[in-house]
């Protein structure tokens, strides 16, 4: 029979890995989303095309298959990545494609009059985007990005399949050691994911409050 006290060290190790993968893939996701989301609105067809194809492909593939592909197939082509890098790359590419759509639609949701006022003041197209439109779009992006980041956190449990020792992986090990206590172990697992998701929401709400201070 095991007790919570004995499980904690293993679960903690797993939590750290899960948090690491979540944080790093979130950074890749946000960068990719911002860049490709803005590219989708470029006046140049080729730039729009590139980001359209990126979104089309990486939104449509299964994350698990992508993960396998990056970790098991790339090495056959001479690109060998660590488990951690493979995980961050696969998750980032996949979620970045969803994020791009959030960025794009949030920018499109900023009223046309804002573009026009910026143009009437003779701001350059780049200044219109980054001084006037994007800051307003950012506020709109926060709630959907909050959801996306929680989805991302939950999706990190798939890295168990490339044997990264994340939270889910550790819980599976514990379960194999303490089979009768599966309910408690997995209950604890659910709780930890729930707490991590709550932290993400808290950060998102804090940012939202900060960014929209005084404006509404």
């Amino acid at each position: 029979m095991g007790s919570i006290g004995e499980w904690i060290p293993l679960l903690w190790e797993g939590t750290v890995i899960t948090a690491q993968v979540t944080l790093l893939s979130a950074i890749v996701t946000l960068l990719l989303a911002a860049v490709t989301g803005i590219m989708r609105l470029s006046k140049f067809k080729i730039i729009r095309g590139i980001s359209y194809i990126y979104v089309l492909i990486f939104r449509g593939v299964s994350l698990l298959v992508l993960l396998f592909w990056v970790y098991y197939a790339l090495p056959l082509m001479g690109v060998e990545l660590s488990k951690m890098t493979s995980a961050v790359l696969a998750i980032g590419l996949n979620f970045g494609a969803f994020g791009a759509e959030i960025v794009r639609s949030s920018i499109l949701a900023v009223p046309k009059g804002q573009w026009e006022a910026a143009q009437a003041l003779n701001l350059t197209p780049t200044q219109r985007m980054f001084r006037v439109i994007f800051p307003q779009a950012l506020v709109r992006m926060l709630p959907p990005f909050n959801n996306l980041m929680i989805e991302l956190l939950k999706a990190t449990s798939l890295i168990y399949f490339i044997t990264l020792t994340d939270l889910t992986y550790q819980a599976m090990i514990l379960r194999s050691l303490y089979l009768p206590q599966t309910a408690q172990i997995f209950g604890l697992l659910l709780l930890i994911y729930f707490i991590m998701a709550s932290i993400i929401s808290m950060i998102a709400r804090m940012l939202e409050r900060k960014l929209s201070a005084g404006r509404m």
Binding site: N122, T124, Q136
Partner: peptide, 19 residues
């Protein structure tokens, strides 16, 4: 069409500064 994310002064100084 004021810029809602800028204060009054920011709205009026934006173009003089950037343009």
């Amino acid at each position: 069409n004021l810029f809602p994310h800028m204060k009054v002064l920011g709205n009026v100084t934006e173009a003089p500064r950037k343009v």
